[in-house]
Design a protein around this nucleic acid. Structure first.
Lengths: 175, 175
DNA sequence: TGCAACGATTGCAGACTGTGCAAGGTTTTT
DNA sequence: AAAAACCTTGCACAGTCTGCAATCGTTGCA
């Protein structure tokens, strides 16, 4: 069972759900979308908090990510299953990618309340959303690490990278 | 013709290519992969240049991206077509996403020659690859802008975002 | 109560993607 | 020339997903 999804037919899924195959496709556009579901959106209140926050931007973003990861951590089993599906199902990856793109656009608009340049906001949104993906990846591949701890590690990498890219102090390069 | 790919069958593609449908699937794993092809890898020499570069990291990365975008710009027609396919074909998106993930991992190893922390390298690779995606997006949506100019705009956003995230000077936040 | 409208569910036929297998043909090697 | 390797093809088949039309239960209203 390399995939787990390819080894199950829609007929079987529908039967197990107690509906006809035709009805299954009335509910879900396709098998993969049904399997991975929709990733949780950033909550409106969290986005508002980010919009109106006054702490340094990095701290407010980290807080948003912590909240999001907290939500994700509630369903570790699902997260792990979805991860396994994504690893070997290209269509599923594309569907998720589309959903995450929407979230990133959404987040870009939020950031526009904090910075006045759209490209900057887009870069921040990209960094933020991919940090979550990176945390999940690390959590999946490292033993005995919580999702939250994984995010901390990833985020520190993001901050260090920003430090290097903003290039304010070449001295760090020296060792 | 909303998609252009869904309105064409593999039978037609194979026939137009002068081979049987069965042979078509010997060459390509599926229709979408055949349509979008494999994105150009970073060239080995460019990666070497990045590994051994001595300029500030941001400058070396920008140079790599410029080179890559230069390559992409050679086939603007293809780029535009692929973009149209990706917009409405989830499976194609997933396939490309997989290929880009591989490139990102590849780039992460390269960055490990410049920074000693894997998470930092991963964040840099993520930033770099997504800047290319962002540039293509901007180029597709803005009239009268070259790919190279789009990258410049996107990259400036990345640098500004890094500036904000590294948080070395809260003064900028003040206005 | 009767009936009409509505949405949800279903079966069925069919188009399409992709794979396994075996047959046939061509090229290369010995 | 014989053998080996390789490429192409046809065929059968499993599986996904859609369009269409029929059915059924519920609700609202006369």
């Amino acid at each position: 069972m390399q995939n787990g999804l390819e080894s199950v037919t829609t007929d079987e899924i529908a039967a197990a759900s107690g509906v006809s195959t035709r009805t299954f496709f009335n509910y879900y556009p396709n098998k993969e979308a049904a399997a991975i579901g929709h990733p949780p959106d950033f909550s409106d209140s969290d986005k508002d908090a980010l919009r109106t926050g006054t702490a340094p931007l990095a701290d407010d973003i980290k807080w948003l990510l912590d909240r999001q990861v907290e939500t994700l951590a509630k369903d570790e089993a699902i997260l792990r299953m979805v991860g396994r599906i994504l690893k070997c199902n290209e269509k599923a990856r594309g569907i998720l990618d589309g959903a995450l793109s929407d979230q990133r656009e959404d987040l870009t608009e939020v950031f526009l309340s904090r910075v006045n340049n759209r490209q900057t906001a887009a870069a921040l949104a990209q960094t933020a959303t991919s940090a979550i993906g990176g945390a999940i990846f690390l959590w999946e591949h490292e033993d005995n690490i919580t999702l939250s701890a994984a995010l901390d590690r990833v985020w520190q990498g993001v901050i260090d990278a920003s430090w290097l890219l903003s290039g304010t102090h070449e001295k760090d390069q020296l060792y």
